[in-house]
Amino acid sequence: MRLPAYARIPALSWLALLALLTITCGGAFLPLGPFNLVLGLAIATIKTTIVLVAFMKLLKSPPLTWIYAGAGLFWLMIMLGLAGTDYLTRTLLSVPGR
């Protein structure tokens, strides 16, 4: 079936997204230990990239939009990272007197 031009890229992307959904769901049942989380987030990242590029057409938008999209992500990393300096090290350094 020959898809009209406006549906081609969306359709291909959609099939890829559904395939990735199957993989991520199935992959959750594999005994990978901590890598289950890594796999799940990695596949989520790939799906997001497909949505960003194919559906949201980020790369065809003004470059300023890339900067702000990136900034949102980068600032989220700051929040996670610096909060991590507390939560990841609480049991690491002993406090004098305890």
């Binding site: 939009t65 900034a71 949102g72 929040m79 996670l80």
Partner: peptide
């Protein structure tokens, strides 16, 4: 376009607090 992407960046931080 730029306006909506700036807004989406704010949404990333909004959900980001919960994700943290």
């Amino acid at each position: 376009t730029i306006g909506i992407w700036v807004f989406l960046a704010t949404e990333m931080l909004f959900f980001g607090g919960l994700l943290t």
